[in-house]
Amino acid sequence: MAEHVSTDRVAGPSALVRRLRTAGWFIARNREASTIVVAILLALYFYSTAPGFATSSNLVNISQEIARIGIVACGLALVLICAEIDLSVGQTFAFAPIIMWLAMSHGVPLIPAIVIGLAATAVVGFVNGFVTVYLRVHSFLTTLGMYFLINGLNVTITNGFPKDTPGPNIVTNGMGGSSYSEFIWLVALVVLLHLVLRRTRWGIHTLATGGNLTGAREAGVRTDVVKIGNFMACATLAGLTGILEAFRVGSIDPLAGSATVMFLGVSAAVIGGTSLLGGVGTMIGAFFGAGILTLLDNGFTLKGISAFTFDIILGIAILIAVALNVYIARFRTMRKPQ
């Protein structure tokens, strides 16, 4: 991607300055780069200061939390790139395992039940997209309404009581039950979605839809289809995360969903360089954004910082990360290569 990192031909600045400038330009050009650097620094910091950080059980914890935040963040990034938002992911997250349970309680076997659960979230995503695109309701409002609607459905269907997941077997182990299975899902999805975003027409059209809606439409991009499709992908990814989490915990909780699921997802995507204004975003950034949030949470907990203080630190960290992103974006446009 960055074959043409600017090499100054001017014979003025020293080699060091030039190298620094090239590095700065590289970081500015690759939106993920700064996020990756921060994630690595955080990992090193906690590795050397937090007791028990590098133990195998803690690494499992970290991998599971990154996956929980990261998969939702990737889905949200798709919607944010379209210059829309999906607040309802906090509840579609809990909806998928509940529908799966509902199907199973009617005699549907496990695997088809999982598919039905995911399909139900895809329908939720379709409704989000359809109302937003064709009824011209801002997606903030569409999905806010959907958040409460799904919350109500979750509690109604289950009568408010948690349900057991089917006992451990090869399917449930692969779907979140075994230690690293969630993380493997995350990595596979990040790779897949990165390819989709950068190397398929769908991805290019997604970036174009959010970057310049009129221009994309004029160029023949079916922006309505693109938006609805990404709402569906986002909801389905949130549902998948909910199913993975249900199998990990061994219980289907109607109250598993919350605004926090959504806020962490949006934060991870934005820390990773996705713009709330659309047109800009990366999957690898969403992955490392989730990494940063997880490391902060995990590391400060291990260091014995109280939950109250932790939220203050987390809030400040998010503000700094987002401000940095805006600054870097400005730096990018100021620096015009000639």
Partner: peptide, 27 residues
């Protein structure tokens, strides 16, 4: 109105008419 800022020059040139690798969903 015409161009998408966050896309490269060549993706803008081919926007809506992207060439695909034969037998693959990739561009």
């Amino acid at each position: 109105l015409a161009l998408v800022d966050s896309l490269s020059v060549f993706h803008n040139m081919f926007l809506g008419k992207e060439l695909r690798l034969a037998g693959s969903p990739l561009v």
